[in-house]
């Protein structure tokens, strides 16, 4: 059971010329079991929305609210949000030199669960999660994301999604930089996660192709820091055929 509710969210970043507003009143409710796709042109603020939900310090919320099952998310620290059940698969996963994947995963799992996973089953679980996304188990001893290809980084995000098993997952362009095989593998991972229970998914994407593998219940067109239009899966088909032009010119 989880509902993520975003109300009239305004977010700014600091620039050399002073603060710049990027999110200009976002409204969005993701109920458990629902998959929402957010689609929009480059620079429309999709990653800003994702980072703001996760609590990245660069993004400053000036007004509005984000709640998870009625609890104020914005009052939580970054790690508290994760422990409350939010997960962000990043568009550009970060390299952490000197920290092995296995140490990282175990530390994260311990933090999320509040207790260390059972050693015997944990190694099996990690290996199995890697196998499912066709990641060699040797990655466990490598440093987090260091020297990983773009596709390997995305698979590693999915491994984390499956192992940490959050309530709501925000996936920021998890499809970008993937070839068709990798796209299927990653999509299957997201679908397995969804089957795990009443999970909410916020799927941010620039292209429609991932929606062939992950079926959204709702599609939101995101333009200039706002949701410009909402609809069902058929909205994605229209975007596939006509692109963002209609929405972009309407917003100007």
């Amino acid at each position: 059971m989880a509902t993520l509710e975003i109300k009239d969210l305004h977010v700014q970043v600091q620039t050399e010329d002073g603060p710049k507003e990027i999110l200009k009143g976002v409204n969005l409710t993701i109920k458990d079991g629902e998959t929402h796709a957010i689609m929009g042109p480059n620079g429309s603020g999709k990653s800003t929305l994702a980072y703001s939900i996760a609590g990245h310090p660069k993004y400053e919320v000036t007004s509005g609210s984000v709640t998870l099952d009625g609890v104020d998310v914005l009052a939580m620290t970054v790690d508290e949000r994760a422990r409350a059940g939010l997960f962000l698969a990043m568009q550009y996963p970060v390299e952490v030199p000197g920290v092995s994947v296995s140490n990282f995963l175990r530390t994260a799992k311990t933090a999320i669960d509040g207790e260390a996973p059972k050693l015997r089953t944990w190694v099996k679980d990690v290996n199995a999660a890697m196998d499912r996304v066709k990641m060699d188990n040797a990655f466990a001893t490598r440093n987090v994301n260091e020297g990983f290809s773009g596709g390997e980084k995305k698979r590693h995000e999915i491994v984390q999604l499956e192992l940490l098993d959050p309530k709501v997952a925000v996936l920021d362009e998890t499809d970008s930089g993937l070839d068709i095989d990798a796209l299927k593998i990653v999509s299957e991972g997201v679908n397995r996660f969804k089957e795990n229970g009443d999970k909410g998914v916020l799927l941010i994407t620039h292209y429609t192709r991932i929606l062939r593998y992950i079926k959204p219940d709702f599609v939101h067109v995101f333009v200039n820091g706002q949701v410009a239009e909402e609809g069902g899966p058929e909205l994605a088909d229209e975007l596939e055929a006509n692109g963002y032009d209609r929405f972009v010119s309407a917003a100007v």
């Binding site: 970054v78 530390t107 940490l164």
Partner: peptide
Amino acid sequence: FYLRSRGIAE
């Protein structure tokens, strides 16, 4: 941020 977004305390 990356580590903390996985639940790991500061």
